[in-house]
Design a protein around this nucleic acid. Structure first.
Length: 854
RNA sequence: GCCCGGGUGGUGGAACGGCAGACACGUCGGUCUCAAAAACCGAUGCCGAAAGGUGUGUGGGUUCGAAUCCCACCCCGGGCACCA
């Protein structure tokens, strides 16, 4: 027998697979298709344990799916644009492409050493002009559809990265990549109007049954839909006369309008200065505006906020009762949500309440719980009997409206009867309308960096901003650029200077590049048609493979990449290029790989585990299997080399068992076999046969539900179950008996096939040499069948409970009648019953008998 | 504050409402060996010598029966958050 030697078999088989094109996709196959995809990596260096875990899951699913008869698309590529490459280029006085492609080569070799079954012919590299060309093409399509906008507004600026960021890339006021504090700047930037799709991005989450709840929840939070109404308040002049001008607010609580005792504008409110110019209020208002501007995004993102505000000297009229309401400006109102103005109802909103307390503004009770002591005295009041109350906090819950004119007595709250009635009233009088607000902002896609996909636009003095004609794509990044010397696209004359495609006059190129997330928003579409020179992909090909059946990646993309990809998919569907609504049918978000103490692996902590070192010590198969066995894929994994060593031992043991089963164990046989009779051999065989069928069923189920750790546990049980059989039946006796010999071989084959998606080299070598499959591959074999009836035992052990507590165990024939079982059970626990009266006997077949006595 | 997860031996983790702790790691004992390693066999939730008791964050509840379902609370992780 040959000993298990991963270091010899792995490179040899990897070469064999590659040369035979084992994992190349066959577009002509009539087998059902399955698209298995893992998020493509950023080539930041060599792969880390997180990659090992992510891609091992994907590879298992791909291999298992192939054995299940699917025609599997399982591609790999690189998300190759991005700032780290630029920083490396500056440091080494080289070009970002040099660093990027070197890392890609390193990672590709590591992936090959892991034995991942990719179709390398379909590789997509985001910084390749053959790919980014089509990203530009898609940008133009978006532009045609009115989804591209260039506008000036306050943006997030990362000083260290030297570029703006999308809202999704700001985490608690800090840059997602470098953790620097983000600043606010007013700049003209390019946007994708993702908010046009806000409603669909939210409502289609319901279709995504194959997505983890937490990811859908995060996206829903991020989109942040609020249903309510816009309400117009008429502005009064400084003298308190109607002006005909209105200020509109958004509210979800129109039912509380009667409780509006003041009105608040955000410090950034556009018409604010006009309101106070030349008045005694101008100075304090402008001071507040300046103070608010100094608060950083980080401060804003954390902690309790002391509210600051000043009166503007102006009033508005409450549209429901005409009351004069003072207008304040305060830093607790957000400029870019709703209209940047709010009606304040201190009795029903905690923020307004706190503000009212601080500045001594009236708190008028207009919504109460029926239990409130005030309720009885106010329940019929249509005027203002009580103008202020002394409460500890606002009453934000549902309640009954009081002192609210004709709405008094109705229920109040979000989406309440009272709210609907007030909105209807406003609509009739033309002072309000239904409205929905989203928290989601448009996607800021321009970046002031070199190493990205150039935005295909040209600035012409006469024609304005015009798109680069399709025929001129791609707009190529200039290769002769010295980033270390401070050169940028904007300073690169050869890049900037061009002619206007409309009028032919001298013009300037746009020098911003696109957010790298534009590259990752559609790469999975390109994989379906990676060499297309005339289009990003042929719709028929994309529609044939997509949506992706199983997508696997890190939870950190719960919003960013997954939201943008959903957006791209919907836009391209609306362009007629795709015939589905959602890109990823099933999503598996893997948990992080941490060190054995539960800490994040990082260079600075010195606790990074190198996949290459692990492969060198134990082989790729052991690394893969150990990762899979560590726990549920979506949970965090604490990497522990003891587990890896244990898995290596298991692979050795299972290897010898397979050899032993087919009689090739030779001197190294694990079990010598005892001189048993054919009867003993056959009894042990029957026992093992049940296990063989049960385990195949269990592993299939477990793979189907991504429960890889329990699948491996089941395979271990099968391996353990062979020991008694091998002990009972000597090789001579097994091989001398046709029945036992062929069964023995069957078990070996089943074991090898079950292991094939987990430890592909281990399985392949056993398949080709020990099982005689030379010239074929275990990875193209069909998945083992199983018969549930064969997994059933003749006898079953039942627990016998008395009042729910286990008191005894009995063994009965599997087909024993209920009465017989109950009788046997009572007999077995007669001591525990101790003369008590039996009131009820519950029998759960195959499980237990519970005797209720007392 | 709102919304999602999660809390089980020394450790990683298993358990359609039905024998809690599968499968491993670790530990202990044994076989083999001059010895060690490897391999193999066995034990291993906790308390107890045993009989037995007890046990899935806490307290209640539903049920013949609860880690699992319901209510309240505590703790941990994550998302959103002065979003009107």
């Amino acid at each position: 027998m040959k000993a298990y030697n991963p270091h010899e078999i792995e490179p040899r088989l990897q070469l064999q697979w590659e040369e035979s094109g084992l994992y190349a996709v066959d577009e002509t196959s009539s087998a059902p298709r399955k698209y298995v995809l893992e998020m493509f990596p950023y080539p930041s260096g060599d792969i880390h344990m997180g990659h090992v875990s992510n891609y091992t899951y994907g590879d298992l699913v791909a291999r298992y799916s192939r054995m299940r008869g699917f025609n599997v698309l399982h591609p790999m590529g690189w998300d190759a644009f991005g700032l780290p490459a630029e920083n490396a280029a500056i440091k080494h006085h080289s070009h970002p492409a040099t660093w990027t492609y070197a890392n890609i080569d390193t990672q590709r070799e590591s992936f090959k050493r892991m034995g991942f079954s990719y179709d390398w012919d379909r590789t997509v590299v985001a910084c390749d002009p053959e790919y980014y060309r089509w990203g530009q093409w898609l940008f133009l399509k978006f532009w045609e559809r009115g989804l591209v906008e260039r506008r000036n507004s306050p943006v997030n600026w990362c000083p260290d990265c030297g570029t703006v960021l999308a809202n999704e890339q700001v985490i608690e006021g800090r840059c997602w990549r470098c953790d620097s504090e983000v600043q606010k700047r007013d700049l003209t930037q390019w946007y994708f109007k993702i908010t046009d799709y806000a409603e669909e991005l939210l409502s289609d989450l319901d279709q995504l049954d194959g997505w983890p709840e937490r990811v859908k929840q995060q996206q829903a939070n991020w989109i942040g839909k609020s249903e309510g109404a816009q309400v117009d308040f008429e502005l009064l002049s400084a003298q308190g006369e109607p002006t005909g001008e209105t200020i509109t607010v958004f509210t979800t609580r129109a039912d509380t309008l009667f409780g509006c005792s003041f009105f608040v504008l955000a410090p950034e409110y556009a018409g604010l200065h006009e309101l106070v110019a030349g008045t005694e209020y101008e100075q304090p208002v402008m001071e507040l505006v300046e103070a608010a501007a100094k608060v950083s995004a980080v401060e804003r993102a954390q902690g309790d906020h002391e509210k600051h505000g000043v009166f503007t000297g102006r009033y508005v009229a409450n549209p429901v009762n005409g009351e004069k309401v003072p207008v304040w400006v305060a830093d607790y109102v957000i400029a870019d949500y709703g209209t940047g103005a709010v009606m304040a109802v201190p009795c029903g909103d905690q923020r307004d309440f706190e503000f009212a307390r601080k500045y001594d503004l009236p708190i008028i009770p207009i919504i109460l719980s029926e239990d409130d002591p005030l309720y009885d005295s106010l329940k019929d009041e249509r005027g203002r009997a009580v103008t202020a109350v002394d409460w500890p906090e606002a009453y934000a819950a549902e309640g009954v409206l009081v002192q609210s004119g004709e709405f008094t007595g109705m229920t109040g709250g979000k989406h309440s009867e009272g709210e609907a009635a007030v909105v209807a009233f406003l609509e009739k009088s033309g002072r309000g309308r239904r409205a929905t607000e989203y928290r989601l902002r448009d996607w800021l896609i321009s970046r002031q960096r070199y190493w990205g996909n150039p935005i295909p636009a040209i600035h012409c003095e006469k024609c304005g901003v015009v798109p680069v004609p399709e025929a001129d794509l791609p707009v190529r990044l200039p290769e002769d650029i010295d980033l270390a010397a401070g050169e940028t696209l904007a300073t690169h004359a050869g890049f900037v200077n061009t002619t206007c495609p409309v009028c032919g006059a001298a013009a300037k190129r746009e020098t911003d590049t696109m957010d790298t997330f534009t590259c990752s928003s559609w790469y999975y579409m390109r994989y379906t048609d990676p060499h297309n020179e005339n289009a990003p992909f042929e719709p028929a090909k994309a529609n044939a493979w997509m949506p992706v059946d199983q997508y696997i990646g890190g939870i950190e993309h719960a919003i960013l990449h997954l939201l943008y990809s959903r957006f791209y998919t919907k836009v391209l569907r609306d362009c007629g290029m795709l015939d589905f609504d959602e890109p990823f049918t099933n999503l598996l978000c893997q948990g992080m790989v941490l060190d054995s103490h539960g800490d994040v692996m990082s260079k600075s902590k010195g606790n990074v585990v190198s996949p290459e070192e692990m492969i060198a010590a134990y082989g790729a198969d052991a690394v893969r299997a150990a990762m899979l066995f560590m726990g549920p894929p979506d949970k965090e994994k604490l990497w522990n080399e003891d587990g890896l060593a244990g898995m290596y031992k298991f692979l050795n043991r299972a290897w010898r068992i397979v050899c032993d089963l087919v009689g090739q164990a030779g001197e190294e046989t694990l079990f010598g076999g005892e001189e048993a009779t054919p009867e003993v051999t056959h009894a042990a065989m029957d026992e093992l046969r049940r296990e063989r069928h049960r385990v195949v069923g269990k592993v299939s189920d477990d793979f189907d539900r991504n429960s890889f750790n329990t699948a491996i546990a089941a395979i271990m049980e099968l391996v353990n179950a062979t020991s008694p059989f091998l002990r009972a039946a000597s090789p001579e006796r097994r091989l001398g008996c046709d029945r036992a010999g062929s069964f023995s071989r069957e078990v070996a084959e089943v074991l090898v096939k079950l292991m094939a998606p987990i430890a592909p080299h281990w399985a392949e070598e056993l398949w080709q040499t020990v099982l005689g499959g030379a010239g074929s591959s275990v990875h193209t074999q069909s998945w083992p069948e199983f018969d549930p009836a064969m997994a059933a035992a003749d006898e079953v052990e039942l627990a016998v409970q008395v009042n729910g507590k286990v008191k005894a165990k009995i063994t009965v024939a599997a087909d024993a009648t209920e009465d017989a079982v109950k009788a046997a059970a009572q007999e077995a626990v007669s001591n525990a019953l101790d003369g008590k009266q039996v009131r009820k006997v519950v029998y759960v077949a195959g499980r237990l008998v519970n005797i209720v006595a007392g």
